[in-house]
Each structure stands twice: as structure tokens, then as C-alpha cells.
């Protein structure tokens, strides 16, 4: 990953075992980057899926989601952990 590559401000992870597929996040997401899976999860629900790019990290999907642990919204760290020129990605 090069330093010049523009990265999304946000990132979304969906807990497949927690999501019940109500669809509220899909509707609320401003950039419309959340869809619904074709596959059913372990409990028989379709689950929310992140399109993979376009998330702004606004957190609205998290606010409207009724399940405590189904969604986790990440934001690009303000101080990039990639040291310029080293090409080494930060260690979490």
C-alpha cells in the first residue's frame, strides 16, 4: 500500500453472528455503502455487508443499529502509524 493511495476515512466491520438483518443501517448509511448478504448466517438471518469502500466513519449505522456488538465503525487514525519512507506498516 503506497502512501499516496487515498484511503477511506472510515471502515465498517459487521459481526455476522450478531447482525439480525433488520436493515436499519442500510437505510441510514449516508454514502449507501451497506448492503444485505445473500447468504443466511448461522441463525438464519441475512446480514449487513459493507461494500468495502466509501465509509466515512460517521457512525450513523452504529447509532441506528439495535444490536450492541453487531457493527464496529473505525476511523483512520489521525496520526498515521506508517512511518514515511520506511514502507513498514504500523503495528497495532
Amino acid at each position: 500500500m503506497s502512501d499516496t493511495e487515498k484511503r477511506d476515512r472510515g471502515l465498517l466491520r459487521v459481526g455476522v453472528d450478531e447482525c439480525k438483518g433488520c436493515g436499519l443501517c442500510m437505510d441510514a448509511c449516508p454514502p449507501k455503502v451497506i448492503g444485505m448478504s445473500e447468504r443466511l448466517n448461522h441463525y438464519g438471518y441475512r446480514t449487513a455487508t459493507y461494500a468495502g469502500k466509501g465509509c466515512t466513519g460517521c457512525g450513523i449505522c452504529f447509532m441506528v443499529c439495535p444490536e450492541p456488538g453487531a457493527l464496529t465503525v473505525y476511523k483512520l487514525a489521525k496520526v498515521p502509524m506508517v512511518a514515511a519512507g520506511t514502507g513498514v506498516t504500523g503495528v497495532s
Binding site: T72, V73, Y74, K75, A77, V82, G90
Partner: peptide, 17 residues
């Protein structure tokens, strides 16, 4: 789902403690 760590990103909204 625990709030897993992703390089260069920090959790902005996740499951409460």
C-alpha cells in the same frame, strides 16, 4: 464481536464496555 484492531484505524463506534 469484540472490537478487533485494524492497522491505521481506531475504533470510533463499537460495543460499549
Amino acid at each position: 464481536m469484540s472490537n478487533e484492531m485494524i492497522p491505521d484505524y481506531e475504533v470510533a463506534h463499537g460495543k460499549s464496555k
